[in-house]
Design a protein around this nucleic acid. Sequence first.
DNA 1: AGATCATATGTCATATCTGATATACCGTCA
DNA 2: TGACGGTATATCAGATATGACATATGATCT
Lengths: 106, 106
Amino acid sequence: MDSQKKKALAAKGWRVGSTAEFLGLTPEESQYIELKQAFSGSLRTERLRQDVTQVELAKLLGTSQSRVAKMEAADPTVTVDLLLKALLVLGVTKKQLAKIIAWVPV
Amino acid sequence: MDSQKKKALAAKGWRVGSTAEFLGLTPEESQYIELKQAFSGSLRTERLRQDVTQVELAKLLGTSQSRVAKMEAADPTVTVDLLLKALLVLGVTKKQLAKIIAWVPV
DNA sequence: AGATCATATGTCATATCTGATATACCGTCA
DNA sequence: TGACGGTATATCAGATATGACATATGATCT
């Protein structure tokens, strides 16, 4: 993805599910972003479900609260790798991960 | 993951499924690597199934043949992001991605 | 109001990933 | 044998992600 599109997405924070479509992204780029948003959303849901704060999760991950906030905002500087590691640290199983992916909007 | 472990894995190429366990990795690190290997293996399978060469896939992705080779080798310098993008370019659906994850060895 | 807790946002130096290039390896076929 | 197609491996400069920090916002108390 070129940095133009990235900046545009950053500006919107990727908060709107269908934002990608209006930015001239290829289908693969859109799908990738939606996957990322799905992981990001699940991270927040699971963290809250376990009654864990961002500070506590940050400690578990060996990172900072601000980075956790960015993860949950699906910030463009956050990789899927990082999101997966965070979910795994919270004890999310592969089965649950599969469900998260399966539920990504078409 | 510290670079020590990373180097050790690189040396082994992560080719053996249970390699991670012998390197003092945390359960989450192992799970993450196994996920990566699963995506990596599926990428190769799907590419060959479609009768596409690494050079052709590289062109589709806007990258080089050598990088595709590293993707399929689950090289430590390859992110899950990149693997996902490659799978999506090959037309793999979210449903298929979910299956890939679900089949990661316990 | 002020204090406290949780989360969000912006910036930065450093670490890591990236595509590209060169080159090596390995079949197969003439 | 040599040439070719496909893949693997090593290296590197430039791009991007990383954790850390400072600071802002917002909610909930007394």
